[in-house]
């Protein structure tokens, strides 16, 4: 098992390299001279001599591979450059914002896991009957409602009309309810559908017939027999969703005014703040790679054949 994990880790290194290369290229291909941009903040127009001096200072006269290696070296020590718009170090800015995104992602994935699997189990247990059709209609709605629209509807209902929840901002748990609901909505629906179809596939297998022949209840069949096997594809899907959530939802963070990395990326795009964007791309890429490793580990632990190896008694 350890060997398997090490293999996985090694196979993820090229991905990490690709992500860092992409982030670096993003900085290179962007229009405008970074040296000029760095000097021209606040309406000041630098002279060509000043620009050349700055280019040398920033190392922009070196060949690209050298620039890349220097950039990676700095990134490894946490130095992701300085934001054009705020003049603050990008690394510090991201570190300050990531806890908000982490909190939102943790709430959303918890909701997705609990609601998605519960809905999927209900639908599969009553396949073709009323509960299944209700879950089908609900997940259809969740998948087709755009997040911003759902967010506005929730704000209208829970904040404006009922006054139960705050409209926006970052504070106690009450501030997380609506953002987490919106962010988890589509992935809950996907998880529910995937759980349902995976369960139905398991029901058709011989071991489920054998289990039913023991006179067990419907719930025992679903939860104890089919679910431990059906959960494997769902885990992979949940991992992908978690990756997306940890990347920070630009829409949800903006609507609910949450200072996470998603809203940071949005302001970086509007301000053409390339170092900030580079830092964001690198961070989310790293998060995805780590999530992939996590998902592989979890799926492996769920399968006793892999967990215990192929040995015989």
């Amino acid at each position: 098992m350890k060997q398997y994990l090490i293999q996985k880790l090694i196979s993820l290194l090229p991905v990490l390299f690709g992500v860092s290369l992409l982030a670096f290229v993003l900085g290179v291909i962007t229009p405008g001279n970074p040296a000029e941009l760095a000097l021209s903040q606040g309406g000041y127009e630098p002279t060509p001599e000043q620009i050349t001096e700055m280019e040398e200072q920033m190392g922009l006269d070196a060949p690209y591979p050298v620039q890349y290696l220097r950039w990676v070296g700095r990134a490894l020590t946490g130095d992701l450059g300085t934001s054009y718009s705020t003049r603050n170090p990008v690394g510090e800015e991201l570190a300050r914002r990531i806890p908000v995104t982490l909190k939102l992602a943790a709430c959303s994935i918890t909701l997705t896991i609990i609601l998605g699997i519960a809905l999927g189990c209900t639908a599969a247990a009553w396949q073709g009957r009323l509960p299944d059709r209700i879950v089908g209609a609900l997940t259809n709605t969740q998948l087709s409602l755009p997040a911003f629209w759902l967010a506005l509807l929730l704000i209208l209902l829970f904040a404006e009309t009922l006054g139960w929840l705050p409209t926006s901002g970052n504070g106690g748990p009450r501030y997380m309810i609506m953002p987490a609901l919106v962010l988890s909505s589509a992935s809950t629906a996907t998880a529910a559908r995937l759980t349902r179809s995976a369960l139905l596939e398991e029901f058709g297998k011989q071991y489920c017939t054998a289990a039913m022949a023991r006179g067990i209840s419907r719930w025992r069949l679903v939860l104890k027999n089919a679910l431990p096997n059906a959960i494997v594809p769902v885990t992979a899907m949940l991992g992908n969703s978690l990756g997306g959530m940890l990347g920070g939802s630009i829409i949800v963070e903006s609507i609910f005014a949450l200072p996470g990395i998603g809203s940071y990326a949005l302001s970086a795009v509007t301000n053409r703040d390339y170092p900030a964007l580079q830092g964001y791309v690198l961070l989310t890429g790293l998060i995805y790679v780590l999530i992939t490793l996590l998902v592989d580990t979890v799926s492996m632990l769920l399968n006793p054949k892999v967990r215990l190896g192929g040995k015989r008694i």
């Binding site: 071991y207 017939t209 006179g215």
Partner: peptide, 24 residues
Amino acid sequence: ARKRLGTEIGLIPQSPSDSLNPAR
């Protein structure tokens, strides 16, 4: 039939390797 399963009629299913739950 469901009420009698196990207690009055038992099943020995086909293909043993597919008839045991791999995760339990």
